[in-house]
């Protein structure tokens, strides 16, 4: 479980995160949603420590990350896996070297053990026959899958995904979402996913937090979200005609509502 308590962050005099508190649960996919520019990336990067926060605390299973020294932080970071918006695979390494990299860097495994683990992770994301390819030779969806494989090589306790399906077609996007959710359950990971995609919310939103201009406006599950009475959230959720129509139909037949 990851607990965020009263964190604020500003760049110069631009307040980007305003006193946010939330807890993210283990074995679930926790979503941070909001329109672009609302502060999702900054929140995620603050949680993992890529940004210094101005005030507040972040606890990883009761361990206060904000009060740790450099060495302790480094130890906790070894329990992190992160999938970046553009996958952030290392260009000069092959797929296999990318996924093996954390093992090379942090374990004393033999080469065969490392390859076994690497291939297991690649297989888990359905990327078996691409070992020797370079990232530039992969499609967006494949890159994301390799990114996930690299993120899980060291058996992380925490998985962070920044817009895992941006730039992907809807089918591939859902496939990536489902993969993230399955892995979260299988390995009992605390997963946080940033997204502005309502499809993801309805697909994998075990727990959802809505952020608007740096302020947490709402939290709940995907089942509550359609009936929430927060104006900003409704504007976000029902931005498309499709969603508006669904809501209209739903309201006409109250007996089908669960």
């Amino acid at each position: 479980m990851i607990e965020v308590r009263n964190i604020s962050k500003s760049f110069g005099d631009h307040l980007v995160l305003d006193d946010i508190s939330i807890s993210f649960e283990k074995g679930k996919t926790n979503l941070i949603i909001g329109k672009s520019g609302s502060g999702k990336t900054v929140l995620l990067q603050s949680i993992v420590g890529l940004h210094e926060i101005d005030t507040g605390e972040i606890l990883f299973d009761e361990r206060d990350f904000t009060r740790m020294n450099f060495k302790q932080k480094k130890q906790v970071r070894k329990e992190f896996g992160m999938l970046f918006q553009g996958a952030a695979l290392f260009d000069s390494f092959t797929v296999e070297e990318n996924v093996r990299y954390p093992l090379d860097m942090f374990t004393d495994m033999t080469f065969d053990e490392k390859m076994e683990r690497t291939n297991f992770c690649l297989q888990r994301v359905d990327m078996m026959n691409a070992n020797k390819l370079f990232p530039a030779e992969l499609s967006g969806g494949m890159r994301k899958r390799v990114g996930i494989a690299r993120a899980i090589t060291l058996n992380p306790r925490y998985l962070f995904c920044d817009e895992p399906n941006s730039g992907l077609d809807p089918q591939t996007a859902i496939r990536i979402d489902k993969l993230i959710r399955e892995i979260t359950g299988e390995f009992n990971i605390t997963t946080i996913v940033n997204t502005h995609d309502m499809n993801s919310v309805m697909e994998i939103g075990d727990k959802v937090m809505f952020i608007y201009e740096g302020i947490k406006c709402w939290e709940g599950t995907k089942d509550d979200i359609l009936n929430a009475d927060n104006q900003y959230l409704n504007d976000f959720v029902f931005a498309t005609n499709l969603a508006k129509t669904v809501k209209l139909i739903q309201n006409k037949k109250p007996e089908t509502r669960s």
């Binding site: 970071r77 992190f80 553009g86 952030a88």
Partner: peptide, 17 residues
């Protein structure tokens, strides 16, 4: 520079490298 803006450097930092 490319590694920086495509978040490859962040990826290393996150791993604790």
């Amino acid at each position: 520079g490319t590694m920086r803006i495509t978040e490859q450097i962040d990826a290393l930092e996150i791993m604790g490298v």
